[in-house]
Design a protein around this nucleic acid. Structure first.
Length: 452
DNA sequence: AAAAAAC
């Protein structure tokens, strides 16, 4: 039964008042559907698109049921896959719990741990975390997880990726067995299904249909381009139209590509540009997002660290500079625009070598994305640039792999072994880290290296 | 040729 207003959900006065302050009168479909299910205390699997108001969907019933307590240990644990999402979820909870006496704390890596340790020691009710730092705090016995009654995992499909998975399982090991599990995923995968089978008790499912989701507010188009340089020309041409492209989120597949694109755009768009990926310091990451959010800089170049869940107002365009290989990422990326019932535009640039990835996307989206022709002013890059190719390839692949490190049977065997044995991080990443020379502004250890 | 996530 769908509630038409928040009053049909039998909330408490402090929650009504907070929603009122926020200007929210009607629950989104997932909020209406999830409320009683989550409130019942049963394990819950929610399938919901981004931008559907997931945080409030689980926080409304949790906050209504949370009794005041003076005990120091947290009773609610919320895990998300990126640090920026921790910040956002904490912010949302604080808004919703404005008139409720609960202590909310966000913890994540990349920042000094001592302040977090002190905050934990002061006592808290709700903890929002990325898995690594949470585990760190827990095993160092600063943080007690024995009182956790409710576990929420958002974007659970990413959390089950290799590299994340064992962190998650390790945390399950130190949580009380008697607890309510609440998980959200945009898509149902085999891994998610397996997790439910292993850890959930009589799970209830909540899902909202694809129609009526925020994706309906997003106009999607694709551009067929012959090569990278034409993509760059096209991008520069579009970005010249500052009135139309007033808040543009550009996605690329690799961190290196993010830096490279940032540099390529710097000449024309210097003061309008920021960049984010996980090799940047946490300070730099937060600053980039802030500049983009506030509109100080209208262009943000990003890896998929930005793809999921983040809520930034009025993003006019999402540009998929690279065609994502994992079609789900396309869906998450374009979900950064068209939020809060506003209109948004999503563009996809694809080269001939990316047509396969494109087909996967169109299969997932159950649509053929309309193709847009290149503006006449866009220069088609050709042979001349092909000459530069070897040079560029070399510049972008400075890592010389030893034979045993090269992809092949030995490599895969070693990688598999290493991933199995080692918490956090695959062999490939270790090799990359070993040879990596941080060099771009904002990169971790950038200053350290420069001093030498 | 994925990214993310702990020191």
């Amino acid at each position: 039964m769908d509630a038409t207003t928040f009053h049909d959900l039998k909330l408490t006065t402090p929650l009504y008042n907070a929603l009122d302050d926020l200007g929210f009168t009607h629950p989104t479909p997932i909020q209406a559907e999830a409320f009683n299910v989550v409130a019942s205390g049963a394990d819950v699997v929610g399938i919901a698109q981004t931008g559907t108001g997931k945080t409030f969907a689980y926080m409304l019933p949790i906050l209504r049921g949370l009794k005041y307590s003076e005990q120091a240990n947290p009773r609610v644990l919320i895990m998300v896959p990126t640090r920026e999402l921790v910040v956002q979820v904490v912010d949302e909870i604080e808004k919703l719990a404005k008139y409720i006496n609960v202590r909310v704390l966000g913890v994540y890596g990349g920042v000094n741990i001592n302040a977090q340790k002190r905050a934990v020691a002061e006592g808290l009710d709700i903890i929002v975390a990325t898995p690594g730092r949470l585990y760190d705090l827990a095993v160092s016995r600063v943080l007690q997880l024995k009182s956790i009654q409710k576990l929420v995992i958002d974007e659970v499909d990413v959390m089950l990726d290799l590299g994340f998975r064992h962190q998650l399982i390790n945390i399950f090991d130190i949580l009380p067995e008697r607890r309510q599990n609440i998980m959200f995923s945009a898509t149902m995968t085999e891994d998610v299904d397996a997790l439910i089978t292993d850890f959930f008790i009589a799970p209830k499912r909540v899902s909202i249909a694809l129609s009526g989701t925020p994706l309906e507010n997003i106009s999607q188009t694709k551009y067929a381009v012959p090569n990278y340089y034409t993509k760059l020309n096209l991008l520069k041409t579009l970005l010249q139209d500052r009135d139309t492209y007033n808040k543009v989120l550009i996605f690329v597949a690799f961190k290196k590509m993010a830096d490279r694109l940032f540099e390529a755009l710097e000449q024309d768009f210097r003061d309008e540009l920021c960049v984010i990926h996980s090799n940047k310091t946490q300070n730099y990451r937060l600053r980039s997002i802030e500049q983009f959010r506030e509109g100080t800089n209208r262009i943000l170049v990003a890896t998929d660290v930005m793809a999921r869940g983040l809520d930034i107002d009025n993003v006019s365009h999402v540009i998929n500079f690279d065609t994502p290989n994992f079609p789900e990422n396309y869906m998450h990326r374009i979900g950064r625009t068209g939020r809060a019932e506003r209109k948004g535009a999503a563009l996809l640039f694809y080269t001939p070598s990316e047509t396969e990835a494109l087909e996967k996307i169109e299969a997932l989206m159950q649509m053929v994305i309309p193709v847009n022709s290149l503006p006449d002013t866009v220069t088609i890059a050709t042979e001349l640039l092909e000459e530069e190719r070897p040079k560029i390839l070399e510049r972008n692949n400075p890592i010389k792999l030893r034979d045993e490190d090269k992809p092949g049977p030995a490599y895969h065997e070693k990688k598999a072994k290493n991933t199995k044995e080692n918490l956090g991080g695959s062999y490939k990443f270790k090799i990359a880290a070993k040879y990596k020379k941080p060099k771009t502004r904002g990169d971790k250890n950038y200053n350290k290296r420069r001093k030498k």
